[in-house]
């Protein structure tokens, strides 16, 4: 079947298999920043934005996204210029192996859009679905606080 999806502001008309998951489709199209880690909607590594909302692509049928807008990690830094969130993650050492980072960035972008001045509790609550096995989360929370501040002062 054929679906039409806007991915990172680019229109795609794609032939898909019935039952195909968005994670698979995106990776096949070359959006490798979308990570396969659990396939059971339990880790957050495959998070993308659909119409601005964070969604787990491993358990979203591609067919269900027909006519919608998808934004992946690849859509969040322009021409190599890092976003405030990406910059803060680097500065705070919040990316160790980096495998969970695309999902974290995409979710944090949604958070800061909804709530430009989140406190620590709100960050933890919003990002609780994004598992990380490397950092112990402290540096990631610090990074998002820092990014929020930088974005407010922009």
């Amino acid at each position: 079947m054929r679906v039409n999806i806007k991915i990172n502001d680019k229109n795609h008309s794609i032939e898909i298999e019935p039952g195909e998951m968005l994670l698979e489709t995106l990776r096949r199209l070359g959006y490798k920043g979308v990570k396969h880690a659990c396939s059971t909607a339990s880790c957050g590594a495959c998070t993308v934005q659909i119409d601005g909302k964070p969604v787990l692509s491993c358990s979203t049928f591609t067919a269900a996204v027909d006519g919608h807008e998808v934004k992946t990690i690849e859509g969040f830094s322009n021409e190599g210029v890092l976003s405030e969130i990406q910059k803060a993650i680097l500065e705070e050492g919040a990316s160790q192996c980096g495998f969970c980072i695309p999902g974290l960035v995409v979710t944090a972008e949604a958070l800061l859009k909804e709530n430009p001045d989140p406190d620590q509790k709100e960050i933890i609550e919003y990002l609780k679905g994004n598992l990380c096995r490397c950092t112990g989360y402290e540096s990631q929370t610090r990074a998002i606080m820092k990014a929020a501040k930088a974005r407010r002062e922009r």
């Binding site: 490798k32 920043g33 979308v34 990570k35 396969h36 992946t72 990690i73 690849e74 969040f76 830094s77 190599g80 890092l82 990406q86 993650i89 680097l90 500065e91 050492g93 990316s95 192996c97 980096g98 495998f99 980072i101 695309p102 960035v105």
Partner: peptide, 21 residues
């Protein structure tokens, strides 16, 4: 000194750097 990770820019941008990529 707290130098940023040399592979950090690729990681935070989700560049295709892992085996499955």
């Amino acid at each position: 000194t707290p130098v940023e990770k040399v592979d950090g820019k690729a990681l935070v941008r989700g560049k295709p750097v892992f085996t499955d990529d």
